[in-house]
Each structure stands twice: as structure tokens, then as C-alpha cells.
Computed example of a mutant assay.
Amino acid sequence: PDLSYSTCVFDLANGPVLLDIEPVPDHYWSISIFDARTDVAAVRSDRDTGGKSARLALIRKGMAVPKGYEPVALRYDKGLALIRILMTDAADFPTIDAIRRKSTCKQL
């Protein structure tokens, strides 16, 4: 097996960062949030979401969380989000890649 990776480097200095992670049917996937010290702030996977998308708002204390997003409070402004998708067959990559590209990481 192999993994397809996507990364998002973020900075909360200008407000929350919203992550919308598109689910990949019939494949294990996860999103891990690491803070500036590389401590894990949160992990969600297809097992946590029941196969639905993950919608996370990366925030610092006092920041508002948009409706429909799960807050992930961080101690530092900067960090990294890492999406991993399990691939058991290289022939699946074009399909997985098309789904993966629908995920977003954007400053609010």
C-alpha cells in the first residue's frame, strides 16, 4: 500500500483557517493538524466522520467559529495540516487525485 499526501501550511495571525476535506469513498483517509512545535492538535479520519467530509476551523482563543465547522483550538498561529489517503492500487491514483483536489484550506 501507498499513501497520497496533501499539505497546507497555515498562519492564524489574520484569522481562522477553514479546512474542508472531501471524503474518498472506499479508502482510508485522515487529516492531521500539527502546531508550530509539531505537536498534534487534532486528527480526523473517515472512521470519525462516517465517510462524510471533515469541516474544521483552525482557531486561536477568542476567534469565532463559522457555523458548520468543528473548532480546533491551537496554541500557536502557525502550523501544518496533512491529508493522507491510503491507496492499495496505483491505478486508483487519478480518481483519488481528482477527489483530493476538491479539499480546501483557506483563510477566513
Results as ranks from 00 to 15, higher is better:
46 D>C: 03
38 T>V: 10
33 I>E: 07
55 R>P: 04
63 M>Q: 14
56 L>R: 04
58 L>T: 01
36 A>F: 11
37 R>P: 01
59 I>A: 06
61 K>T: 09
63 M>N: 01
45 S>A: 11
55 R>F: 13
46 D>H: 09
61 K>Q: 09
62 G>Q: 08
54 A>Y: 07
55 R>Q: 11
61 K>E: 12
55 R>A: 12
32 S>R: 13
67 K>Y: 11
47 R>S: 14
37 R>M: 12
58 L>R: 03
52 K>T: 10
52 K>N: 13
66 P>G: 01
49 T>I: 05
48 D>K: 10
61 K>V: 06
53 S>R: 13
38 T>M: 13
35 D>V: 03
40 V>R: 14
56 L>H: 08
36 A>E: 15
38 T>C: 04
59 I>E: 00
41 A>L: 07
45 S>H: 07
49 T>S: 11
44 R>Y: 12
63 M>Y: 04
34 F>D: 00
47 R>W: 13
48 D>L: 06
48 D>V: 07
56 L>V: 09
39 D>T: 11
58 L>N: 01
51 G>N: 07
41 A>I: 06
33 I>S: 02
57 A>P: 00
63 M>T: 00
47 R>I: 12
36 A>S: 14
56 L>G: 03
60 R>I: 00
61 K>S: 13
50 G>E: 10
55 R>S: 11
45 S>L: 02
52 K>L: 12
35 D>P: 03
41 A>M: 14
32 S>D: 14
54 A>R: 05
51 G>Q: 05
35 D>S: 12
60 R>K: 07
34 F>G: 01
37 R>F: 12
51 G>Y: 06
67 K>V: 08
32 S>I: 10
58 L>F: 08
